[in-house]
């Protein structure tokens, strides 16, 4: 089998109930079913989680380095979007 020909999958694990799934890594597999089993065998050998998501890596759309200027820079000078920008009335104990 040509391993390089196998599609790549991204693996997300929920470590316990109530928490979000987090990206833990990736693996190669023939299809979703096999990816799910390999995720179990590769990333859950030591009881690391209670739920698995596998996603075809090619289905993930990632932002690009060239997007930085448009995507992130404009936010840097808008501190009023943070709650901490505002003076809190004394009545509000904590935020």
């Amino acid at each position: 089998m040509n391993h390089n020909a196998l599609p790549l999958f991204e693996v997300f694990i929920r470590s316990k109930r109530g928490l979000d799934h987090r990206h833990v890594g990736s693996l190669h597999a023939e299809d979703h079913e096999q990816a799910m089993e390999y995720a179990r065998d590769v990333y859950l050998r030591r009881s690391e989680g209670v739920s698995i998501w596998v996603v075809n890596s090619s289905d993930i759309v990632a932002s690009q380095e060239s997007d930085v200027e448009q995507f992130y820079d404009p936010m840097d000078d808008k501190p009023y979007r943070h709650a901490t920008h505002y003076d809190l009335p004394d009545e509000v104990k904590s935020m």
Binding site: M1, H3, L6, L27, H28, A29, E37, Y38, D41, V42, R45
Partner: peptide
Amino acid sequence: APFLEEDLALSN
């Protein structure tokens, strides 16, 4: 094993 993922699975 034929590839890494299967290697770990068989070892398990």
